[in-house]
Every structure is written in structure tokens, then in C-alpha cells.
Design a binder for these strands. Sequence first.
DNA 1: TTTAGCAGACTCCGGCTAAGACTGCTAAGC
DNA 2: GCTTAGCAGTCTTAGCCGGAGTCTGCTAAA
Lengths: 350, 350
Amino acid sequence: MARSRKETDKSNTERAESLLKTLIERYIQDGQPIGSRALAKDSGLDLSPATIRNVMSDLEDMGLILAPHTSAGRVPTDKGYRMFVDSLLTVKPMQAAVVDTIKQQLAASANTDSVISNASSMLSEITQLTGVVTMPKREQVRLEHIEFLKLSTKRILVILVMNGQEVQNRVIDTDRDFSASELQQSANYLNAEFAGQDLSTIRSRLVTSMQQARDSMQQLMQDTMNLADQVLDSSKNDDYILAGETNLMSYNEMCDINKLRNLFDAFNSKRDILHILDQSIQAEGMQIFIGGESGNKVLDDVSVVTAPYKVDDDVIGVLGVIGPTRMAYDRVIPIVDVTAKVLSAILRPD
Amino acid sequence: MARSRKETDKSNTERAESLLKTLIERYIQDGQPIGSRALAKDSGLDLSPATIRNVMSDLEDMGLILAPHTSAGRVPTDKGYRMFVDSLLTVKPMQAAVVDTIKQQLAASANTDSVISNASSMLSEITQLTGVVTMPKREQVRLEHIEFLKLSTKRILVILVMNGQEVQNRVIDTDRDFSASELQQSANYLNAEFAGQDLSTIRSRLVTSMQQARDSMQQLMQDTMNLADQVLDSSKNDDYILAGETNLMSYNEMCDINKLRNLFDAFNSKRDILHILDQSIQAEGMQIFIGGESGNKVLDDVSVVTAPYKVDDDVIGVLGVIGPTRMAYDRVIPIVDVTAKVLSAILRPD
DNA sequence: TTTAGCAGACTCCGGCTAAGACTGCTAAGC
DNA sequence: GCTTAGCAGTCTTAGCCGGAGTCTGCTAAA
């Protein structure tokens, strides 16, 4: 008896989940509340609408779906979507052709910056949502060459060549005036000592050697260290590249111009979006933020799907898409996943 | 008799113009069609609504205003706005405090790039419209220092320092492998020969001297010239910086989400906007494009107010704002004008 | 030339109705 | 005990109607 009861329970929750799944799939497709009659037809379960209604009522009690008003069908809640993506979703395999396109497009990029912006554009184009890719973290960047150039008294231009293709300029103000030959000497020393190491390593070694030999070091050497310290100290580039923002305007649920404006303002101010991306850079694999889950008002009604990209098993950035909560997760997830993998492969130092 | 008729005609067109002016001013203020009764009150002319109606009818015949439907007031047409800004407008003087803010904000910028983006933000913030500033033309940029850095076989990083604050990197691929000392020699020569001149001058001199001495020149010198040519040949940066795009979302006339999307897409693709800006870089002073005048569909319903900025009397870029046709021209025009002047002053090489 | 007055047109708004879509409930059936 | 048919009730949507308000164009008078 007990056993039979348990089995019934199990088959019941299974049925409920299956119905939730079809409901969400259907809702994602046409964006309108799903009624019991429609769900009965779609479910493939040969149940009458009345039975479906009972199940739907249960699902509503569980907070997985809700009815916009008394006599409308049901739409998924954030919690419903969460359950859907966590355990119900069956992702669609990607077409090989699309994967190839991604690979080729990214491989054709000239430098790191354009790889990043290409990745963002591709994500946006393929998913028809907004693509986002963070700039790679500096910690994973190997210094290849450093050069100093005197701009004017006490102003020095520092040129950093990194990873064979990326170049950064920084202008620093110094305490004292350096002669051209002094700068040359400093650069020579730093190149001999630190070329080939990654920036964070250099930074930490710099600090220790400065402390160790504060007195014994000759003046120029000490100044050199100070220079280098100043260069590496400059703010790290917390930044991302967006593409296809306007894609969001095609979605009905984004018709509220104020919501849209808030979202776009968030894109511009970058802070809120970076916060989300920061969270997912720490997590191992793919992350999905659904609607208000992120605790951020402007992201109500939108979901963010992200995946970290890495070089040599170290996560150096995040990429993903931003779209309405009602997005085709089954299609979007593999796209984000693959793009992250391809980007990782491309960025691997050769 | 003839004289009196002429005088009457004149006073009549004067009256019509005055009425057009008040109508547009009023419409700019509250964005709703203006009826004869309202206009009669606002005009200060002590005429009855009936008389006003006759005049409005004339104005409509002239294509300066139109009625959205039979029993509504009148709104200005593009042609009406054109007449308004060309001959009727009285611009408001700017508050000294605002001018000071602009000056300080721009002067505080670290380098050319940030001056440009600051200018764009300020325009957007003060006018509550979308600010746009083109990057300065390269032709007006003085080379201060050039440096070559070998990245790998046949790949060279070129560093150009311009105008004391701006730095540009270009990576070029060469036909043959250059040694470090060869590069050093080339750089030394170019610095000695060309430092302090502007890039376009350098470019033309380069070409002539290459032709002149093709055979007599020693090999390295010839290679040096080729290098320099390659550097300067790289595409010029046709680009602009936008700020405050989302401000446009606050305007009622922009409620059509499709129009808005098209406009934003145009911002992103840059081509259409650059076309407008190109036109106004050639004109001497301030330019105003009203609605569809520009011949561009996406710019229906929006106006663009631009002013060129210059260094040493040479126009090197354009700046302005983009907003609904119904914008407060009397306030916007001086703001754009002053900002252009301030930017010109700031960019003057010291 | 200006004005008053009037008929006509059109928008906007609220209220009302009919149609349609669902739900929840109850009672009957397997 | 689960499932189902049927039914009453609820809510949205679209459409229609009528009144209020606005504004125009016309005509005739000042």
C-alpha cells in the first residue's frame, strides 16, 4: 500500500514536471499565457483539460507558474524558469555549420580587442539577443616588452607589449625628471628581468625586491622599480563589450519604454552589469541569472546567460547574452557555451 | 496706392512670420497642436481667433504648418522649422555658470580621447539630448615622436606620439625582416626629419622624396620611407563618440519603438550619422539638419545641430547634438556653439 | 480687412455589450 | 482515488455609442 502510494506520488510529480516543461516551452515560443485546453493538446499525455487544471493549480501553489488575471492561462514565474533550466531543459545540439562560422570569424580577428568585440557581435547575431564579453583579466597577461618614452618634463609614456599582439599605453607623471638614457637603462633592466612573466607576478616580485634592497640599491634602480610599480598600479580595466543592444527592442515584453531605458542606462553605466558578470567569473561553468534573481531591479524581466572563458585553465573573462526572461534557453545555452570554448582556444598563447 | 499696397503686404507677411514664430515656440514647449484661439492669446497681437485662422490657412498653403487632422490645431512642418531657425529664431544667451562648467570639465581631461568623450557627455547632459563629437581629423595632428618596436619576424609595432598627449599604436607587417638597430636608425632619421610636422604634410613629403631619390638612396633609407608610408597609410579614423542616447527615449514623439530602434541601429552602424557630420565639417559655421531634410529616412522626426571645431583656423572635427525635431533650438544652439569654441581652445597645441 | 457666429468634423473618453477564453468547483464515472 | 464532463463565474478584449470638447472653414456683417 505504502509503496503504491509512493509510486503514484512519483508519477504525479513527474507528470507535473513534464507539464511545466511543455508549458514553458510553449510560452517561450509564443509569449502568451497558456490555458489548460492548449496545454492538454500539447502535452501528449491524453489527459482532459480538467485534469490539467488540477495539476496547474498545484504548480501555481508551488510558485512555479502564475495567472496574470483570473481568467487567463498561466505564465512561468522566475522560480518556474529556474526549475526549467536546472532540471527540465533539453538543450538543442548546435549545427556544425554555426560552430564553424564562430571559429572562423573569431580566428580571423587581428588582435585581442577585435576578438572580444567579434565574439560579442557573433553572440548577438546568432541569438538575436544582446551579446556581452568582458575584457580579459590583466593578471593572465604576459609582459613581452616594455618601453619608456619621454613626453615632457616629468611625464613619461609607457608602452607595454603583451602576449605578442596586444599593446597598451600609459602616461605617468613622475616625481623627478628622467633623462632619455636613464629611461633606456630602466627599460633594458625591466625587459631583461621580467619579460615573459605575467603582470601580477611581476608586480609581487617588484614589491618584495623593493623592500629587500631599499638601501643597497643604487638610485636609478630604485627609481626604475618605482616607475614599474606606478605602471602596474594603474587601474585594471573592468570593462565589457556589448553588441546588439537594439535586438532587445524587438521583444514585446520590452515594450515598456521606461524599463528599456533603465536597462540601456545600466548598459552604459556598466556597474550593475559588471556585478553580475563578476559573480559568474568566479563560478566554474555556465551561469544563468533569471529575472530579479540577481537582486537587481533593472534586470527584472531579463535573463543573463554566461560562461567563463579561460586560458590554461585559468578563468580570465566572462561572455554571454542578455535577453528577455522568455528566451530560447535550449538554443542559447549551447551557443554561449561553444563561443566560450572557441574564444578560450583562440586566446591560448601560441 | 501702389506704395500703400506694398506696405500692407509687408506688414502682413511680418504678422504671419510673427505668428509662425509664436506657434513654433509654443509647440516646442508643449508638443501639442496649436489652435487659433490659443495662438490668438499667445501672439500679443490683439487679433481675433478668426483672423488668426485666416493667417494659419495661408501658412498651411505655404507648407510651413499642417493640421494632423481636420479638427486639430496646427503643427510646424520641416519647412516651417527651417524658416524658424533660419530667420525667426532669437537665441537665448547662456548662463555664465554653464559656460564655466563646460570650460572646467573639458580642461580637466587627461588626453584627447577623454576630451572628446567629455565633450559628448557634457552636450548630452546640458541639453538632455544625445551628444555627438567626431574624433579629430588626423591631418591636423603634429607628429612629435615615432618609435619602432619589433614584435616578431616581419611584424613591427609603431608608436606615434602626437600633440604631446595622444598616442597611437599601429602594428604593420613588413616584407623583410628588420633588425633592432635598423629600426632604431629608421626611427632616428624620421624623428630628425619630420618631428613637429603634421601627418598629411609628412605623407606628401614622403611620397615626393621617395620618387625623387628612388635609386640614389641607400637601401635602409628606402625601407624607412616604405615603413613610414605604410604607417601613415593606415585608414583614417572616421569615428565619433556618442553620449546620452537614452535621453531620446524620454520624448513622446519617440514612442514608436521601431523608429527608435532604427535610430539606434544607425548610431551603431555609424554610416548614416557620419554622412551628416561630414556634410557639416565642410560648412563654415553652425549647421542644422531638420527632420527628413538630410534625405535619410531614419532621421525623420529628429534634428541634428552641429558646429565644427578647429585648431589654428583649420576645421578638424564636428560636434553637436541629436534630438527630436521639436527641440529647444534657442537653448541648444548656443550650447553647441560655445562647446565647439571651448573644445577648439582646449585642443590648441600649447 | 477684420470679426462674430455657426455648421461640420474629428478626437477623446467613459460606459456598455457581446464574444471569447479560462478557471474552479461539483458531481458523476472508471 | 483519480479522472472527467459540465457549468457557473470571472476577466479581457474589441467594438460601438454618445457626449463633451476643440478646432476649422465659411459666410455675412461690421
